[in-house]
Amino acid sequence: MSTLKPIVSEIDHIQGNKSASIEIVEFGDYQCPYCGDAYPIVKEIEEAFGDQIQFVFRHFPLQEAHEFAFKAALAAEAAGMQGKFWEMHDALYENQYRLANDLFDELAETLGLDLEKFTADVNSDEARDKVENDFESGVRSGVNGTPSFYVNGTKFDGGATDLYQMLKESAE
């Protein structure tokens, strides 16, 4: 049984109720088609369960397979430094079909970010360290592909649809 290492803390990107009874951590890659498919389902889970869940996203860019995955993760981190991590997270998945180097600045502009700061932050050690630490956490937690979900610290064996089904059944 794989467990989440390290546990969720204030350095994570957390959405939802911090005192929720269900904590879902996704290790994802912005260029992974399976993560792209899981994205609307995760949104649905968040809507359906509201305050009962806390959702955490950790980066797991598969650089060998996806040339823009690492850059996309850096763009999300840079947006996060301006308080817009989740907005960039959503925009990257919603525009996954056109991921390319010029997309990141375009999304930053759309989100109203300070572009000079965004460019500097994308290239910062802070952004790179966060993405690398998330990836390392995935390796230590037994992630072997994306998306990988952990529910209350334990690896969930299945995809987003299975996760939604399990949550619905346990809520009944």
Rank of each mutant, 00 (worst) to 15 (best):
M1D: 07
M1Q: 06
S2L: 10
K5F: 03
K5E: 05
P6V: 02
I7P: 15
I7N: 15
S9Q: 07
E10S: 07
E10G: 09
I14H: 06
I14K: 03
Q15G: 07
Q15F: 08
Q15V: 08
Q15T: 13
G16M: 00
G16D: 00
G16V: 00
N17Y: 00
A20I: 14
S21W: 02
I24V: 10
I24F: 03
E26D: 10
D29H: 03
D29R: 02
Q31H: 14
C32L: 01
C32E: 12
P33D: 04
P33W: 01
Y34L: 08
Y34W: 09
C35F: 15
C35K: 08
A38I: 04
A38C: 15
Y39A: 10
P40C: 09
V42N: 09
V42Y: 13
K43N: 09
E44A: 10
I45S: 12
I45F: 10
E47L: 08
E47M: 11
A48Q: 05
F49K: 00
G50H: 00
D51T: 00
D51M: 00
Q52K: 10
I53S: 01
F57C: 12
H59I: 03
F60T: 08
F60L: 01
P61F: 11
A65D: 10
E67V: 04
E67K: 05
A69L: 03
A69D: 11
K71M: 12
K71Y: 09
A76W: 01
E77Y: 05
E77Q: 12
A78Y: 11
A79N: 02
G80H: 13
G80V: 04
Q82Y: 04
Q82L: 03
W86R: 03
M88P: 03
M88G: 05
H89A: 06
H89E: 09
D90W: 02
A91V: 01
Y93F: 09
N95Q: 07
Q96S: 04
R98V: 11
N101K: 11
D102Q: 04
D102Y: 06
F104L: 01
E106N: 06
L107N: 08
L107C: 06
L107K: 12
A108K: 04
A108R: 05
E109P: 01
L111Y: 11
L111R: 11
G112S: 08
D114T: 01
D114F: 00
K117Q: 11
F118Q: 13
T119E: 15
V122Y: 06
N123L: 12
S124D: 08
S124F: 10
S124T: 14
S124G: 09
D125F: 14
D125M: 13
D129T: 13
D129M: 11
K130H: 08
V131R: 04
F135Y: 11
F135C: 06
S137I: 02
S137Q: 03
G138T: 03
R140D: 14
S141P: 01
V143K: 06
N144Q: 15
N144S: 05
G145D: 05
P147D: 12
F149H: 10
Y150I: 02
Y150H: 03
K155Q: 14
F156A: 12
F156N: 07
F156P: 04
D157C: 03
G159V: 10
G159S: 07
A160K: 06
D162Q: 07
D162G: 15
D162V: 12
L163V: 14
Y164K: 04
Y164W: 14
Y164R: 13
Q165H: 04
M166E: 06
A171E: 09
E172V: 15
